[in-house]
Design a protein around this nucleic acid. Structure first.
Lengths: 204, 204
DNA sequence: CAAATTTTTGACCGTTTGGACAAACGTTAG
DNA sequence: CTAACGTTTGTCCAAACGGTCAAAAATTTG
């Protein structure tokens, strides 16, 4: 998918590719795929367009590389949910991690949201395969926890959806959240407030 | 903002403008603003590009008209929340209405989500003004309900955010929801399942 | 050092896109 | 019927865009 189709990558290639991916994340997350231009990404990366195209085959290749990496990090928190752990603690940790990701990696969250909004043209197979399997597995764990009375009974799949929706909301809809909370309540503390609220909502 | 700057609009103008807006909603909600072309919209509306531009000044004008209308409908359910009503019933009705909108008007939801994701360049003033005022008012009502013990105590602003996030999730992330639920659980019943789950979550 | 290889760039190309325009077509009122 | 007005279209344009290419510049290697 990338230009240096040869064997190993040089130091410069590794560095420049990282630089490009960082710049592309910034640009893509702000304007979406179609709304972003190679020139914008090149400028953000501090290089010329042909130079950028020396490291990546094209716009699509950059985007795909970006989203592939993203998915790994995206699923990690759910993967860490442990059937052997204490249910309340496990759920609380999961919510915390997801809120921290919304706070620390909002660009990644928006990139992902954008892809899903457009119908997930590039990652649909992954959603129907790997993601579905993972969610089904964890839903089973949650269902068992609920049966044991450790969590309030509810549909485990929708339970997971609700955690996704509420936590990612603080990254994807950040502008709206800040606009509504205003300058005082909308400061940096909003993520801590959100985390506390969500723990109460899902565990109270 | 629109071509016929003259006084009143003819019957044909009203009809054709509606046709264009319907087509534009379809196209914009699928590809976003930058990802959509006037030609696509014109074709979806069954007319030529110059003809479409006879009714609207440009691509931007179509989009703005669309989003202006949208905001009205979008805020309506929250506006209907009545301080004099029964808290449980009012919240339940609000959730129901929002889920119904996600089910019946997913294109509108995605259009809105797209605009917010891009930083709300066209509606930021509205978010900071009208929306914030409305939310503050309703948050006050909810806070009072909580003080009376009619609802579980929590931050009312984040409470509203959570309802927005969870309900709109079923429109904006529909592809993902269906992929994860699979063919059986992901059928038409998913909205009813979601509604029941959310009532339990927010009112249980 | 010089040769080989990698990296960078300016110039260029074909396509797509938003939009303009005048001419043609249709409709309606006097 | 015809003049005025509203509607539709074919044609055209300039800018933006994704991408190519050959040659120059820099770096690595022998």
């Amino acid at each position: 998918m990338d230009k240096p189709a040869g064997r190993k990558r040089t130091r410069i290639q590794r560095e420049k590719r990282e630089l490009i991916l960082e710049a592309a994340l910034e640009v893509f997350s702000q304007h979406g795929f179609r709304g972003s231009t190679i020139d914008q990404i090149a400028e953000a990366a501090g290089m010329s367009k042909p130079n950028l195209l020396y490291y990546f085959k094209g716009k699509e290749a950059i985007f795909v590389t970006l989203i592939d990496r993203l998915m790994e990090a995206w699923l990690a928190p759910l993967r860490e949910m442990d059937a052997a752990g204490d249910p309340q603690t496990e759920i609380r940790s999961y919510i915390r991690r997801k809120i921290e990701m919304a706070r620390d990696f909002p660009r990644e969250s928006r990139l992902f949201a954008n892809e899903i909004l457009q119908g997930a043209p590039r990652i649909l197979p992954l959603l129907e395969g790997e993601l579905k399997e993972l969610v089904d597995e964890k839903a089973g764990i949650i269902r068992e926890w609920m049966r044991q009375g450790k969590l309030k009974k509810a549909d485990p799949h929708h339970f997971i959806f609700a955690i996704w929706a509420t936590t990612q909301h603080y990254a994807d809809f950040d502008v709206q959240v800040r606009a509504v909370l205003g300058p005082d309540k909308g400061g940096e503390g909003r993520f801590e407030d959100a985390a506390r609220f969500l723990e109460g909502l899902f565990l109270g």
